[in-house]
């Protein structure tokens, strides 16, 4: 796990997002650094998804200064979309296409140069040990493999930041641990990982975590410092202490 080197790739200053009278994100302030694994925790309905949508260029914030990968969240959503990768809890691969075809499709929509697709594909698949399965339909593969592949697909175009929305829900503990190995390796390559999760043991793997409650960020620091500050043994207790 490498330490963040202090270059911010996401800057959020006084971010507000309202839907009518409802305030989904109330004055958020944080920065995420290059190569960092940033955990974004919070109960359901705390406003995580809303914030993530803004950071992914899917919705425009109500107010505040937000830049992602150096691009403005109001005016440069197209550029933001090009610089990020995204993986959701549903893994989002096409079950009726082969492993290879899924990669080709995403490579196409992210404009990966045609010459690079083949060597990169070989490299990514070898890394997760699934190269010999490249001609198989996604639908025929076990869940743990799909998850690995979905992550490889999300980082295939070498984005600056990859957003993972509860990437491990429904996967067994061993596969989860393997998956985190993949995340560490990605962050080592300098790709920033922004991850939401409901598993508190996973929060311990993050360089820094933020905890959201009712639209506000109520805690943000490294896991060890937070545990010290709130005098708890693990993030799970911390979470319960903060989010009542």
């Amino acid at each position: 796990m490498n330490e963040p080197n202090g270059i911010p790739v996401i800057r959020v200053k006084n971010m507000m997002k309202k839907f009518g009278d409802f305030v989904a994100n109330d004055n958020l302030n944080f920065e995420v650094y290059k190569g960092e694994i940033f955990g974004f925790l919070g109960a359901n309905g705390a406003g995580k998804t809303t914030a993530m949508k803004v950071l992914c260029g899917l919705s425009v914030p109500t107010s505040g200064e937000i830049t992602v990968a150096g691009y403005d969240a109001y005016t440069q959503t197209e550029e933001i979309k090009r610089s990020i990768g995204y993986m959701s809890q549903k893994f989002s691969l096409y079950e009726d296409l082969t492993v290879e075809e899924n990669f080709q499709f995403y490579a196409g929509i992210y404009k990966v140069p045609a010459k690079e697709i083949k060597p990169r594909l070989e490299e990514s698949l070898n890394k997760v040990g699934l190269f010999e399965h490249r001609k198989k339909l996604i639908g025929s593969l076990p869940l743990g493999w799909k998850q690995k592949l979905a992550f490889s697909v999300a980082t295939f175009h070498q984005p600056e930041i990859v957003f993972l929305d509860e990437p491990t829900s429904g996967v067994d503990p061993v596969a989860r641990r393997n998956f985190w190995e993949q995340i560490f390796e990605t962050s080592d390559r300098g790709i920033t990982v922004f991850v939401t999760t409901h598993y508190m043991d996973e929060a311990e793997y993050c360089n820094r975590v933020s905890i959201m409650d009712q639209g506000k960020i109520v805690a943000l620091d490294t896991p060890s410092k937070l545990k010290e500050l709130y005098q708890v043994d693990n993030i799970f207790d911390l979470f319960l202490k903060i989010v009542r």
């Binding site: 992914c56 260029g57 899917l58 197209e78 979309k81 090009r82 990020i84 995204y86 993986m87 959701s88 809890q89 549903k90 893994f91 989002s92 691969l93 096409y94 079950e95 995403y106 929509i109 992210y110 404009k111 957003f163």
Partner: peptide
């Protein structure tokens, strides 16, 4: 239904 629309919308498409 399969959640791939989400990914398409986040993509530069």
């Amino acid at each position: 239904e399969l959640g791939t629309m989400e990914v398409l919308l986040v993509s530069p498409l």
